[in-house]
Nucleic acid binder design. Structure first.
Lengths: 202, 202
DNA sequence: ACGAGATAATACCAGTCGTTACTATCGCAG
DNA sequence: CTGCGATAGTAACGACTGGTATTATCTCGT
């Protein structure tokens, strides 16, 4: 059957369906482990549609990662602002957000980091997108930290990126959602250590 | 040519040669991306020898990871003791050690974590070995922390594992050896926060 | 000196990979 | 209603995969 009977003919929807299915199956089972045929089946599409829309498997992977990093950025940008008033708590709210992510069924770590790990080529799109993804977190933390009154926001932001990525990878390997709360605790200690002294320790 | 002329006939050496070559090529280019033929060529061995010694590619991978985690453990166990007198500095000496690791040419992150990431099956040997690897670090940190006088060594040890793995993955993605020193700074803050108050803050 | 075991090289197998080609059918704009 | 573009399904391609078989040659214990 050439096209699905009764289905509206909508190229944009087909592309979106492929993108969503590929993101899911790549994330769950790994990029190398999944063939184009499996993506096509999961998307309810044909291989022709995949190659018409994305050119190659590498193109599909890049599109998936680009879409994913944008979604994550938007998620943080909109959810964080409403989480808490600017200041220390809004910095830590980032870790509340990722804690809820760790607790999701099917959590498998950061898709960009995973892809970069599979793709050992250091100049390929997956690695570059992973670097940019870390850069987003660094900039986000720096902005929130400076709003919170931390003097050297850039340095502490880099520290929080390390904590965030560490918690993500350990949570993925250990299958322990408690890493989210743990990362929040660590971040609190680091932020307090960088805050001008007024509240005392502990 | 059946066997290399002039070469001594030493099955154990052949096995070790395969193991070393496989470790190198798997670490550099990824497990999925490397075929048995490439391992054989890198080892100067035949596929027959690989299958005779390790049974299958999965068996070879498991042997490589098992050897690697043991080497890392031994490296830490012997190098850390001589690094500093027991106490806070010996805890932080772990991060000096990994900092020198990050600076090595060809550093590509933690082989166990990488393998677990490639092998999305959560009950396979790579994932289990990665979990055990994290467990080694947790136990090592806990022991050093308790020697340093930290009351709840287990909790802080978990925090340091997060910092260590975060620095490792960020260093691998960003290709920035400076993450080692950064991780040491973070660890210092966390240890000081958990130490009984006597030295004051900062 | 001889036999047994280890080994490298080669060929081979069935399966899968990414990718392209082809065909038949559908929705939709004119 | 006609024709074009989008699509699903199928088949095929060459390259490569993990794994096995065969063979010839080497080392080494006896």
């Amino acid at each position: 059957m050439p096209v699905k009977a009764g289905q509206p003919l909508d190229p944009a929807a087909t592309r979106a369906r492929i993108l969503a299915a590929a993101a899911d199956v790549f994330y769950r089972r790994g990029i190398h482990a999944v063939g184009i045929a499996e993506v096509a089946e999961a998307a309810g599409a044909s291989k022709l549609s995949i190659y018409k829309n994305f050119g190659s498997k590498a193109g599909l992977v890049e599109a998936v990662l680009r879409d994913r990093t944008q979604r994550v950025r938007g998620w943080h940008d909109e959810r964080n602002v409403e989480a808490a008033p600017a200041g220390r708590e809004r910095v830590l709210a980032v870790f509340d957000l990722v804690a809820s992510w760790y607790a999701e069924a099917g959590f498998r770590g950061c898709a960009m980091i995973n892809a970069a790990t599979e793709d050992r080529g250091f100049d390929g799109p997956p690695s570059q997108l992973a670097r940019e993804h870390l850069g987003f977190y660094r900039d986000l933390f720096q902005r929130l930290l400076e709003e919170a009154g931390v003097a050297d926001g850039r340095t502490v932001a880099r520290q929080l990126v390390v904590v965030l990525e560490g918690a993500t990878v350990v949570s993925a390997v250990d299958r322990d959602p408690g890493l989210g709360a743990q990362a929040r605790t660590i971040a609190g200690v680091l932020v307090d250590a960088a805050l001008p002294v007024d509240g005392g320790d502990r």
